[in-house]
Amino acid sequence: MAILPLALAGVRFVRAGETLLGPLDLELGACGTSVVIGPNGAGKSLLLRLCHGLLAPSAGRVRWCGADAGSAAQRQAMVFQQPVVLRRSVLANVDYALALRGLPRRERQRRAAEALALAGLEALARRPAHVLSGGERQRLALARVWALRPEVLFLDEPTASLDPAATAAVEALIGRFRQAGTVVVMTTHDLGQARRLADEVLFLYRGQVRERAPAAAFFAAPACAEARAFVRGELLW
């Protein structure tokens, strides 16, 4: 049973009379990792928030089409650019998310231990989460959603403020989600990261999906002029 695919039909997002995103007609979830790229203000974060249900579209519909769509909220997770941790221990941060799902204590302990081990945080389990470094926090955020076993994972620029070593650790974790069969939808500013992780690329420009293609094809020869300029590293806004 699955909640995917995710269909956006005529989705628009308007704020203060200005259309920031859309109209979009889009289906997501057919392939492993979809990477959304585009300049600042293109609507990348907005798109993720609409998909995840944190924002409601001004028009149109965001719909989970799978047989299990009723439990969609429980089967997806999101990690933000600024990892948000609660003022409690590393372990308790993971446990909190599991408790919200109503899992029994035994199961919570098992999953939390497994997730922290995966993220290389077992040694820090009893530390207050607030003393962690930026990279460790992001790994904790990923461990927390790993424990939830989502079918779909949204990542909003997960390595935007991290150094190369921390970025590598986070990308390795994202790889584990892919191996586990989780569909990943992520945004990034880092074209190198997009090349490393993407199965398909969505190029977003001024609130519109201007191009969508398998990663290899996209990076070999972007079809639209803006995407070509963007990939070449020209400043686009």
């Binding site: 909220a73 999101m78 948000v84 003022r87 909190y96 998310a97």
Partner: peptide
């Protein structure tokens, strides 16, 4: 914290004790 808590499945009411703590 609101976005993260909502993402994890805590609505405003469930968030009251969390935020007080």
């Amino acid at each position: 914290l609101g976005e993260q808590l909502r993402s994890l499945g805590a609505g405003p009411w469930r968030a009251v004790p969390t935020l007080l703590w």
